[in-house]
């Protein structure tokens, strides 16, 4: 269940982004999860929901995009998406390979709710 550790890191980053923008509440976080990461997105979202309460991200929704694995064969250089845990090159049959894509665990974006800011502007206008 290292998803709890990851959820805390994601929350810290989102709160950091919110603090840098006047402490606006966090509305949405989009995370990219590579297929080779042993991360269960639903478990991550569950852990995030547990971690976020009482913070400016307590209403935030965690969304995720999954990236398929891409392996480069070290024998013939061709790139392929493995069909199972064994990375067998479909071109030359060699086992193993180098990861091109699939290890991502990236916070792509954080969306902040701007309602507070709008309110402030209105007040200022009056």
């Amino acid at each position: 269940m290292h998803e709890f550790s990851l959820a805390e890191r994601i929350l810290e980053s989102a709160l950091g982004a919110a603090a840098a923008h006047g402490g606006l509440p966090v509305e949405r976080i989009v995370v990219e999860i590579g297929a080779l990461q042993q991360v269960v997105p639903e478990a991550l979202a569950f852990a995030f929901d547990a971690a976020k309460s009482g913070t400016p991200a307590e209403d935030a929704v965690l969304e995720w995009r999954e990236t398929a694995a891409l392996i480069a064969c070290e024998s013939c250089g061709s790139e392929f998406t493995p069909e199972d845990m064994f990375w067998m090159c479909p071109s030359c049959g060699a086992a193993g390979g180098r990861v091109v894509r699939g290890e991502e665990l990236i916070i792509q974006s954080v969306t902040l709710r701007e309602t507070l800011l709008e309110t402030r502007e209105v007040e200022h206008g009056n």
Partner: peptide, 14 residues
């Protein structure tokens, strides 16, 4: 307001 962060979750640990 959407902020493009593009930050590794493991950044601090790494």
């Amino acid at each position: 307001m959407e902020i493009k962060l593009v930050q590794k979750v493991m950044k601090v640990n790494d």
